[in-house]
Design a protein around this nucleic acid. Sequence first.
DNA 1: GAAATAATTTGACGATCCGTCAAAACTCGC
DNA 2: GCGAGTTTTGACGGATCGTCAAATTATTTC
Lengths: 245, 245
Amino acid sequence: MAAPWKERELQRREEEILRVARQLLLDHGYFGMTMDRIAAGIEYSKGTLYQHFASKEDVLCALALESEVKRKEFFERAAQFSGNARERMTAIGAAYELYFRLHPTYFRSEQMIHSQELLTKISQERRDQVMVCGARCHELMTGIIADAQTARQLHLPGGMTPGTLAFILWSLTSGAYLNMADPGHLEQMGVVNAIEAVRMACQTLLDGLGWRPLSSEHDYFAVASRAYAEIFPKETAEVFLAANR
Amino acid sequence: MAAPWKERELQRREEEILRVARQLLLDHGYFGMTMDRIAAGIEYSKGTLYQHFASKEDVLCALALESEVKRKEFFERAAQFSGNARERMTAIGAAYELYFRLHPTYFRSEQMIHSQELLTKISQERRDQVMVCGARCHELMTGIIADAQTARQLHLPGGMTPGTLAFILWSLTSGAYLNMADPGHLEQMGVVNAIEAVRMACQTLLDGLGWRPLSSEHDYFAVASRAYAEIFPKETAEVFLAANR
DNA sequence: GAAATAATTTGACGATCCGTCAAAACTCGC
DNA sequence: GCGAGTTTTGACGGATCGTCAAATTATTTC
C-alpha cells in the first residue's frame, strides 16, 4: 500500500470524476449532476465515488476549488505585471475579466459553495483550501494598494484600509459578473458592454480616490490590452476564438 | 365560488404558508425547508400547498418576491427624497442599506432564485413580477441619473449610459452585501465596517464621474442620515433596536 | 503456487423528499 | 336530507443521497 503508482492512480481517478462532474454540471445544472450519473460516467461505482468525496456538495466544492486555483494563478501572474501600482491593479482587473470570460460556468459553481447552506457538508480540508485561494487573491490586491501608498501615489481617506479597498473592487467586479449571469437582465437594463462598464467603473473609482497616475493622465485601457497581450497571450487568443465561433 | 370572502380566505392561507416557509428557510436553510414541514406548519396538507404554489422553488420565489417588493417600495420612497439628484441617489443607497440590515435573510433567498437553476420550475407569473420589481428599481436609479444630466450636474463619459451607471452602482452594492453574507470573510479581509465602506465607495465613484455637487463640497453622509430620519424613521429605529439587543 | 489475510469495490438498500392523483370530505343549492 | 360540484387529503411513485455488508481483487505468508 501507499505505493507511489497507486497514489497516482487515485489522483488520475479523481481528475476523471471531476471531469465528468463538470460536464454534467455544465449540461444539466446542479440538480442534474447526480452522483449516480457521475458514477455511470466513470467506470466505477457510486461507493468508490464516496471514497474520494464526502458528499455531492464536496464534489461541487472540488470543482469550485479548481476554479479558485485557476483564478488565483491568474491573479499571481497579473500581480507580476511590469509597471506602477495602478497599472498592476489594472492587470489584476484584466486577469479577472479573462478568467470570467474563459470560465463563466466555473464562476457560477464558485458562487454556490459560498452559500453556507452547502458549506456544512464539505470536507474541512477542501473548505480551507478554498479559503486560502480567496485570501491569496485578496492579499495580492492589498499588497498592490499598499505599494501605491508607499510610493505616495495613493492616499486613502480615513477609515479606508487597503483591505477595504480590495474588498470594494472585488465586490464591484464579482457583483457585476454575477448580474451578467442573469439572462436578459442586462438587456433589460440597457447595458451594452458590461465588461467594459466594469473596467470603466473601477478606473473611475480609483480616480475618485486620487490614485496616481489618474486615468486622465494615463490610458489604462491600453494598459489592460498590454496585460492581455503580455501576460495572457494564449488565454486571450482562446477567448477571441471562442467569441468568433 | 369566487365569493369575495373566499378570495380573502385563500389570500390569508397563502400568507400563512409563506410565514411558515420563511421561518423554516431562516432556521434550517433551503434544504431544511421541505414541503412536508411547511404542510405540517399550516393546518393543511401538502396537496393544498400545491394549489397555491407550483413547486418548492415557487415558494422560494414567492418569498423572494416579497423581499423584492419591499425593496422596491423602499426605493420608491427614497426616490421622493427632497434634494438634488445626487442627494436622491444617496437616499436610494440609504434605502438599500436599510433594506439589507432589516432583511439580511430575504436578501439571500432573493439571490437564490436568480440562479437560473431554479428559474425553470417557477410559475411564469411570479417570475414576471420579480422582473418588474427589479426593473422598477433600476428605472428609479436611471431616472435620477438622467435628472442629473438634465440639470447639467453630471456628464457621463462616452459609452456610459444612465442605465449602465445604475447597473454599476447596483452591482457594487449587491456584490458587497453578498460577500458580507459569507461568515468570516470580512474579518479575513480586514474589513471593519463594510456598509460604511460601500457608502464611501459609491460616493467616491460618483466623485470620479464628477457628479455635482462633489462630496468635497457636500456632506453626503449627513444626507444619508437625513434620509434615514426623514424617510425611514420607523425602520431606522427597528435596526438600532435590533443592533443593541 | 495455494491459502490466508487485507484492501477495495460494488450495488442493493434505507431514508428522505418532491409532486401527483384517486378517493374522501366537504359545500351548497334545492 | 340529497346529490352534483368543489376542495382537501395523504398514500404513493419516482428520484436521489449516502451507507454498508457482501463480493471481488490485491497482497502477504508459507
